[in-house]
Design a protein around this nucleic acid. Structure first.
Lengths: 200, 200
DNA sequence: AGAAGTTAAGTGGTCAGACCAGTTGTTGAC
DNA sequence: GTCAACAACTGGTCTGACCACTTAACTTCT
């Protein structure tokens, strides 16, 4: 039990180090050799820990330069996960259903919290489903929900294509303007829910 | 561009190897030394690739035994990410709200899809919020939704405690038995929604 | 023959040292 | 001042060694 793995331990120590130093995106971490010496572990263990941080999208390593904090958000790990997860039909079915449920939840929330400013922002959005709906989710003021949606949408776009007529954007904007939850749901169902089963 | 990193390359080769061999959860992978020789790379590169697979929750390594395929689902990856992300109050507020929304969504879905069998399973559940609600989410038959909820709940329990009276479990079971969506929501709001703002 | 203890082989975990391949900053010649 | 050469970093990779642990085969004893 005492023998916790070194690279795990190192992972957390580096994590703490980052927090305590308050490192921001773009900042440079100590070199692998220095970390190894400072933490009194082998360089290979440091590297395995850094590999984990890299996979999580928290750091970026550049040969010859060093290791740097990475702005959060670029989640290549999501694509990775997706390529493993989305294999069976069961998983795809769940994905579609979940995306649908989340989007309806977001719509309701966005309706409640709509403001003139946000509405304008949405109306100005490009007429692609991704960008338009993203603005809607942003209008929920819930960043976590946005992140969940981004991930789902990311997976989704790997498997399906969603095409809605241009009318959708107008009608949805109007419904949101009225802050009418029922109407937004109606628009959503009319244009989106039928559309979701087209294979790419 | 030609010099793609070996451990990345190795990662994908092992991935392909797993797919082609059709390895199932519990199956054993070749040893690190054998992989290194077969792929003509150093063992350290193999290990860095395996670290990535491990972080993604796809494999599990047991000292002295070997490396094994892992049943999908327990990817502590998300928990790791959470410990990095959930730091500010803004994030906590979003977490509570999102958990709430997801749970309501799950309740509705569970209501629609309730069966005698599932109901019995739920009724027999231990009377802790985590275990009880997990059964409910399982009743949605949507594994992705379950995974999202597990993650949210996991984060949540790091920050808050939720205590519901024993009556909650009975009343919720009854409401689900009636497949009455409105009633389940009422029970949920009565016992859970007020409860969510207690700091740990 | 069967049970218990011992041994050897194999596996992941870790380290140290070497070398390669890039980047950066300095130095020095023009 | 410019620019080329160099030295001193950095991450990337490989090798070989050793440790800790598991398993299975092999004794040995009853």
């Amino acid at each position: 039990m005492t023998t916790s793995k070194v690279y795990i331990e190192t992972f957390w120590q580096i994590h703490r180090m980052i927090e305590e130093a308050g490192l921001q995106p773009g900042d440079r971490l100590p070199s692998e050799r220095e970390l190894a010496e400072r933490l009194q572990v082998g360089r290979s263990s440091v590297r395995e820990a850094l590999r984990a941080l890299e996979l999580l999208g928290l750091i970026e390593t550049r040969r010859g330069e060093g290791t740097f904090m990475k702005p959060f958000g670029e989640h290549q790990l999501i694509q990775l996960l997706g390529s493993f997860i989305l294999q069976g039909n069961r998983e795809k079915r769940d994905l579609v259903e979940t995306k649908l449920l989340i989007e309806r939840t977001c719509l309701q929330l966005a309706c409640e919290r709509m403001t003139e400013e946000k509405l304008e922002h949405i109306a100005q959005a490009e007429h692609t489903y991704h960008l338009f709906f993203r603005r809607i989710v942003e209008a929920t003021d819930n960043y976590l929900l946005l992140r969940i949606w981004l991930v789902l949408n990311d997976f989704f776009e790997h498997v399906y294509t969603i095409d809605v007529p241009s009318k959708f954007y107008d009608e949805m904007s109007q419904a949101l303007q009225k802050k009418c939850c029922v109407e937004t749901m109606a628009v959503y169902e009319r244009y989106v829910m039928q559309n979701m089963s087209k294979d790419k």
